[in-house]
């Protein structure tokens, strides 16, 4: 089997509470489509041959790499032999094909490996979901994160990609001028800050909402992955989920159950956690960063890395 994806690296603008348009660099899912934050979700079956064709509409080299996957990056060097990129670059105006065969299910980042201190902050990241063998999107009875015997059966799945934005840095990088010191004032889930996180999915450059809408009794799989530079502490009120996987290694396998319940989960940069809970009684349950200086927009609470689990 083979699955092909095409990505375009582009400039765009996003909107955050209390700011004007914030320039960013992101991946688009079509030649005519807008750059997105995060990039388009890529969903592939385990053991598929995946080809990602990146077209670079930016004015400088970019690349894409797949941390945690069976994929060997090819570091790029300049003509003087100096390291310039973790992975083969796509030249401005050009296209390049990246190939991998995901050998295990889970949730993984894809992100730029070229000047990532700039390009990842600017938005060149997204998520690839690898489905376990036997997964059939049309048959809820087959929905698991990691396959049979991993305790990861679910009814509702939600992906939450965390990050931070320093709007000054974005303005300066977009203008090509030297970068300011990193001091983010905006904290995002799926490219949006609260209260925008609670808005529905949409078109445009910030398509993914983060409101978790479920029915009492449903099994909810939250897949949280940190694309930012800062560790975050994801706090639940009224719900204590069970951690079923870290960095897409299931904690229940071969009869040994190492899963554990945890109310507030520290998620390091580049890490992921799969959390499972049964939706409690109807009501609104807050989910937010217990780094309380990240649950704000600039200096104002509420904001930032916060959303609502709405149980009906």
């Amino acid at each position: 089997m083979a699955t092909n994806f095409s990505l375009w690296a582009k400039t765009g603008n996003i909107s955050l509470p209390g700011t004007g348009p914030v320039p960013f660099w992101g991946f688009a899912g079509s030649a005519a489509g807008p750059a997105q934050l995060p990039g388009p979700h890529m969903e592939v079956p385990q053991n598929d041959n995946v080809q990602v064709i990146l077209t670079n509409d930016l004015g400088f080299p970019v690349s894409v790499m797949f941390p945690g996957q069976e994929f060997t990056p090819q570091p790029a060097r300049d003509s003087g032999g100096l390291f310039v990129s973790y992975n083969s670059e796509t030249a401005p105006g050009g296209a390049f094909s990246y190939n991998l065969t995901p050998g295990r299910p889970g949730i993984f980042l894809y992100e730029s490996g070229t000047s990532p201190e700039k390009q990842v902050q600017m938005g060149l990241y997204g998520v690839m979901v690898v489905r376990p063998a036997g997964f059939d999107p049309g048959n809820p009875a087959t929905w698991t994160a990691y396959g049979p015997g991993t305790g990861t059966e679910y009814d509702v799945e939600k992906i939450l990609v965390t990050g931070e934005i320093d709007t000054n840095l974005h303005q300066e990088l977009a203008a090509g001028s030297p970068a300011a010191e990193f001091n983010p004032g905006h904290f995002i889930i799926n490219g949006r800050s609260y209260p925008d996180t609670t808005d529905p999915d949409s078109g445009g450059g910030q398509p993914y909402g983060s409101r978790v809408s479920v029915t009492s009794g449903q099994r909810v799989l939250l897949r949280i992955i940190n694309a930012g530079f800062i560790n975050h502490n994801i706090r639940f009120l009224g719900i204590t989920p069970r951690v079923m996987a870290g960095d897409s290694w299931p904690l229940l396998s071969a009869g040994l159950d190492k899963s554990y319940e945890k109310n507030t989960i520290t998620i390091g940069s580049g890490q992921s956690y799969d959390l499972l809970f049964t939706a409690p009684a109807a009501g609104q349950y807050m989910l937010y960063d217990r780094n309380l200086n990240c649950s704000v927009n600039d200096n104002t609470f509420p904001g930032g890395m916060m959303t609502v689990i709405e149980v009906v």
Partner: peptide, 19 residues
Amino acid sequence: NGTEDLSYKKFTVLVGAGQ
């Protein structure tokens, strides 16, 4: 979990905010 003792030894414990 069940009869499985998952406690573990640690030297440096990262005490996370709110945990």
